[in-house]
Amino acid sequence: MAKQTKTDAAQAPACAVEPVELSAATHDFLKALASPTRQRIMLLFARGGELSVNEVAAQAGIGQSTASQQLDLLRRGGIVTSRREGKTVLYRADKQGSATALADLQAYLQSCC
Rank of each mutant, 00 (worst) to 15 (best):
M1D: 11
M1N: 10
A2K: 12
K3N: 13
Q4N: 05
Q4E: 07
T5M: 04
T5Y: 05
K6R: 10
K6F: 08
K6D: 12
K6V: 10
T7H: 00
T7Y: 00
T7S: 05
D8N: 02
A10I: 08
A10C: 06
A10K: 05
P13L: 00
A14H: 07
C15T: 13
V17M: 09
E18I: 02
E18Y: 00
V20E: 08
E21L: 14
L22I: 12
L22T: 09
L22D: 02
L22S: 03
A24P: 09
A24Q: 13
A24H: 11
T26H: 03
T26W: 01
T26P: 01
H27R: 13
H27N: 05
H27K: 10
H27I: 15
F29G: 05
F29C: 06
K31Y: 10
A34G: 12
S35Y: 04
S35H: 04
T37Y: 03
R38S: 06
R38Y: 04
Q39C: 03
Q39P: 01
R40V: 06
I41M: 05
L44Y: 01
L44P: 08
L44V: 04
F45Y: 01
F45A: 02
A46E: 15
A46S: 15
R47T: 11
R47A: 14
G48C: 02
G49M: 01
E50V: 03
E50W: 01
L51N: 14
L51P: 14
S52D: 09
S52K: 09
S52I: 10
V53L: 04
V53Q: 15
E55C: 05
A58V: 07
A58L: 08
A60R: 05
G61T: 13
G61R: 08
G63Q: 11
S65A: 10
T66R: 13
T66N: 13
A67G: 14
A67V: 06
S68V: 00
S68L: 00
Q69K: 12
L71A: 07
L71I: 04
D72P: 01
L73D: 13
L73N: 11
L73T: 06
R76D: 13
I79A: 12
I79T: 15
I79C: 10
S82F: 01
S82W: 00
R83D: 07
R83A: 08
R84M: 04
E85K: 12
E85L: 07
K87N: 13
T88I: 15
T88D: 05
T88A: 09
T88H: 06
T88R: 14
T88G: 08
V89F: 04
V89W: 02
V89S: 12
L90V: 14
Y91L: 00
A93D: 04
A93N: 02
A93Y: 02
D94M: 02
D94H: 03
K95E: 11
Q96Y: 02
A99I: 11
T100K: 11
A101M: 08
A101W: 08
L102N: 15
D104S: 03
D104W: 04
D104Y: 03
L105Y: 10
A107Y: 01
A107M: 07
L109Y: 08
Q110I: 07
Q110A: 03
C112K: 14
C113P: 04
